[in-house]
Design a protein around this nucleic acid. Structure first.
Lengths: 344, 344
DNA sequence: ATTTAGCACTCGTTATGAAAGAGTGCTAAC
DNA sequence: GTTAGCACTCTTTCATAACGAGTGCTAAAT
């Protein structure tokens, strides 16, 4: 099943042309390309073979050829060269970090926006996995006798807050004491381990010093066990409306419903491993994305994977360009974040 | 230009029918309705008059009639009876407040979701105007030598946080002192007045007690002057795709672009006064909304207007139902919020 | 003076067929 | 192995006709 050089050349040109025009590619128009030195009849023969091998398809008996998912896969795996960014694009990306706002979430959100603008596809960025952030400070602000807000600040500057309730009988000074002890003992612990650590390391001390131990302990552990939300940011949600393959209302409906739902797509993205990953069409296992490809890249602080940035486009997406962009942005993002938060 | 009773009846039936079916209404099908006791020929005459007066329109020379914006306006102003909610709907709405989560924003967000589900249109809720909330507590958490997070908690349980920078030379105990003074003096002040109050009431004391007065004062006032974002929540953003009037890709594109942009629509909504307001089609002054109506209602704590909830639908929207719903939800929301936050 | 029946007319929708155009597969010649 | 040539297929476009829903107008009925 190895392809000859000529078949590879033809496949490449078909994919490139189709990505550019969204029109099926015929043998005659192929033969006019300058890199093609043989006749349309030869091309027809080769195309028949490529079709039999499953790399290209016809939309109907007498139409030109269109890359199949297998064809795109071959293209992505073997033929594609990540596009270098030009000067102005590099500048645009760097502008993400230009403002002196060092909030992790803001940077991430802005990345999503710029990514969608540069690609004119839809971008999705999985916010940093807050659960792995380490506790910097916990504070409790009472609102009235039986309600208070717990505020959790992480080392990356992320702020989580949760309201909780307790009986009015609880002594305010008790709450204060508890917060002090928690801060002393839990600073630096990843959020996800907070609850375990409380039981293991702090419970005994708390019990000694605090009158309403049972009640408060119940409230605080319940509050801390709510999983820190891993946020999803979108850019260009409606960009897909401009792609010619989505001139069909039904396709739009199912795709938009899928994007709007957010959960499904964030799961799809989350499970991707480090580095660049390309999922083409049905490889995504989601019927709403049959005509879409999803390219993901991870970003990190140091060696620790933090989150994922992704681009959703039609299968006929500019893989080369998008991969180049994602490559650059994710590396730059990791570099900046590492500098910001690594050595503190 | 007064309409006869019969003309009003015909207009009403046309609007009702068109809202239900989305099809132009002809004289023959009208004459079959049981509330219509005269012939199709009579109806045709009346319809010709109504058309001349501008209440109804034809889509083409030999089509049935469709309400014009003026027709909808008359319907909304004179003919419409807000629909009462049935038992199960009331229950659904009440479920917004069932969970013991008293966070204002969560309640508001959930309202948007339920509103869009009950109407199958798009709902928009303008979050409470945080700027008018009163300061409960301000806290500052240092992240490293030159960065800290300012956390602002309001009396409604809303938490704002902002990162800011200062020279490493600033003494940490200075920061602590400042926070204490700010809390002592500024508690209860609406966020929007914080900056002014700092200068008026706290500056003198701060200058006395704090070494790095100038630098810190600069940082803190700059931080507080960033306007607290008034959040916009959407529900059912893609619901409009299911409306038959949006079978046209171009209409979808411009509408979705408008919804996605969020700013435009939130401005459109913000300026509406207390109570229920209906804007029909071009009354919205926005070409993307030519085929849409926007119904808004305000919610309050006590007498103080807090925010707005709105429904965006086609001009052919079920005004009676939506107005009934908005009426109920906004009243209920106001009641609950008033109970929660008024008497503390 | 209203109301209604009747009818010619308009316009959108649907079905049908013809012509054009793009592209293929196959055969035979190079 | 490559290419020219040609019949064939399928989509797209356009014109045409038939049908149906609905109107406006006239004249008769109430």
């Amino acid at each position: 099943m190895l392809l000859t050089d000529r078949q590879v050349l033809i496949l490449q040109v078909i994919v490139d042309d189709f990505i550019r025009t969204a029109q099926p590619v015929g043998s005659r128009s192929l033969s006019k390309k300058e890199e093609i030195l043989f006749s349309s009849a030869t091309i027809r023969n080769e195309m028949a073979d490529l079709e039999e091998l499953g790399f290209i398809e016809k939309t109907h008996t007498s139409s030109g050829r269109v890359p199949s998912e297998k064809g795109y896969r071959y293209y992505v795996d073997h033929l594609l060269l990540p596009q270098k960014l030009d000067r102005s694009e590099i500048q645009t990306v760097r502008s993400i970090f230009a403002e002196q706002i060092y909030e992790l979430e803001k940077i991430v959100q802005k990345s999503a926006k710029i990514l969608s603008e540069l690609t004119s596809y839809t971008s999705i960025v999985l916010g940093p996995a807050v659960n792995d952030n380490k506790l910097k400070k916990i504070q409790i602000v009472p609102l009235n006798q039986d309600t208070a807000i717990a505020i959790i600040v992480t080392d990356t500057g992320h702020v989580e807050n949760r309201m909780f309730h307790f009986p009015a009988s609880v002594d305010p000074s008790d709450v204060e004491k508890m917060v002090n002890i928690l801060n002393e003992r839990l600073s630096g612990i990843p959020l996800v381990h907070l609850n375990a650590s409380i039981y293991k390391e702090v419970a005994a001390i708390l019990r000694q010093h605090i009158k309403s131990y049972d009640v408060l302990m119940g409230s605080i552990t319940e509050t801390l066990s709510i999983p820190a939300s891993e946020k999803v940011f979108f850019g260009g949600k409606t960009n897909m409306l401009n792609q010619p393959e989505f001139n069909d209302i039904d396709k739009i409906r199912s795709l938009m419903a899928m994007i709007e739902q957010e959960d499904g797509i964030s799961q799809l993205i989350r499970k991707n491993p480090k580095g660049i990953n390309v999922k083409i069409g049905r490889e995504n296992n989601n019927s709403a994305m049959d005509n879409c490809s999803l390219i993901t890249a991870t970003y990190s602080i140091g060696d620790e994977k933090l989150g994922t940035i992704a681009v959703l486009g039609p299968t006929r997406m500019e893989y080369s360009r998008v991969i180049g962009l994602l490559d650059f942005i994710s590396a730059d993002l990791s570099k900046v974040l590492t500098n910001l938060y690594q050595n503190k």
